[in-house]
């Protein structure tokens, strides 16, 4: 791939050539799955097993195609954002406006949870307000392109968009509240004393080709890591497809039960998983009769809050601020869960 690209200076032709193939595949997925299930594999129409097999054969390529497209687009988009630029934009921003921008940039800026602490220190040191920094740090892991595609593929675009909307809302609101409460004194004292080498590391000048390649790299890296979770998630979804939900789960975590959402979050917070790993569990929960709001709240609490993350944060924050952060975000997720259950 790398060789091919360096030989050919006009890399942009790749996506342009691949897009029609993508569309052709996507449009014909249904009939191809249909042909494969009934004509090649010879399943009988109307049986449970047939339904499950068809679901699997149809959903796997569909979700994979969507993933490749979205991750590619996000990969290219993210080459326009760097942590340094984002920090510059957020420096000294006022509450609310800053929180909105922090949350949106949290989604767009490339972020790995393993650099959360250096990033936190870098932001605070440069004068990004604490609340705005939190909006960024909450949005970055919570709103994830892989989760977006999987939710869209398995439950429809409406659910996926509500996930993004409510995720942004929680990040903006929680950061805003943390800023309002003036919790700066609960940041570890040494944080305000560090001085970075102000000498700016010059940012690389990316060419158009670099950005195109950036998209391909993102696809290779992310899809290579998560494809197995996706297969498992869809297989579970397919297995449960068309079967009646079990009473146990729907009684405990169904929409009629008021404590379903808080209970799901209580289970979800100590757990840690990335967005791709949690989706199989979410699809099981929903197939078993857990209401959508409760399942989404569970997913958000797993990816946005986790015990390992809290332990790492302890190095830079005092426990009062950690408690406020976890409490506010968890409350936000509970509200979202309830609203969801009520609306759908």
């Amino acid at each position: 791939m790398q060789k091919l690209i360096s030989l050919n200076k006009s890399v942009w032709t790749f996506p342009v050539l691949l897009l029609p193939i993508w569309i052709l595949l996507y449009v014909n997925l249904w009939s191809m799955a249909d042909f494969l299930t009934y004509s090649v594999l010879n399943f009988n129409q109307g049986e449970h097993l047939t339904e499950s097999v068809f679901f699997f054969i149809y959903e796997v390529p569909k979700v994979m195609l969507l993933l490749v497209l979205i991750i590619y687009a996000v990969g290219v988009l993210r080459t326009f954002f760097t942590t340094e630029k984002t920090r510059k934009i957020l420096e000294g921003k006022s509450l609310f406006t800053g929180n909105v921008m922090g949350a949106v940039l949290g989604v767009l800026t490339p972020f790995c949870s393993c650099s959360a602490i250096p990033l936190f220190l870098g932001f605070v040191e440069a004068g990004v307000p604490l609340g705005v920094t939190f909006s960024f740090l909450i949005a970055a892991p919570m709103i994830n392109e892989v989760a977006l595609v999987l939710l869209a593929g398995l439950f429809g675009w409406k659910v996926a968009l509500i996930y993004v909307g409510t995720g942004l809302f929680i990040a903006i609101f929680s950061g805003w509240l943390i800023g309002k409460l003036k919790l700066e004194k609960y940041v570890a004292d040494w944080v305000y004393q560090i001085k970075t080498n102000a000498e700016e590391t010059e940012s690389e000048q990316l060419t158009f080709n670099d950005r195109i390649i950036g998209g391909f790299t993102a696809v290779k890296e992310i899809v290579g890591k998560i494809w197995i979770y996706i297969l498992i998630g869809i297989a579970i979804g397919a297995g449960a497809h068309g079967y009646v939900p079990e009473d146990f789960m729907s009684n405990l975590l169904g929409a009629d039960n008021w404590y379903g959402v808080p209970l799901a979050i209580l289970i979800g917070v100590p757990m840690y998983s990335n967005a791709a790993g949690i989706i199989p569990i979410v699809s099981v929960l929903i197939e078993k009769g857990v209401s959508l709001g409760t399942a989404l709240a569970f997913m958000m609490s797993v990816i946005a809050l986790s015990l390992p993350e809290i332990i790492i944060l302890k190095k830079v924050l005092k426990w009062q601020l950690i408690a406020a952060f976890v409490g506010i975000v968890a409350t936000g997720i509970i509200v979202v869960g309830f609203v969801f259950n009520y609306l759908i």
Partner: peptide, 21 residues
């Protein structure tokens, strides 16, 4: 963390050659 930040680095991993990122 502090040493990393002294290099002005916010996204790890990073490589520093003779003091230059």
């Amino acid at each position: 963390f502090i040493k990393i930040l002294e290099f002005g680095v916010m996204t790890t991993p990073a490589l520093v050659v003779d003091g230059k990122v």
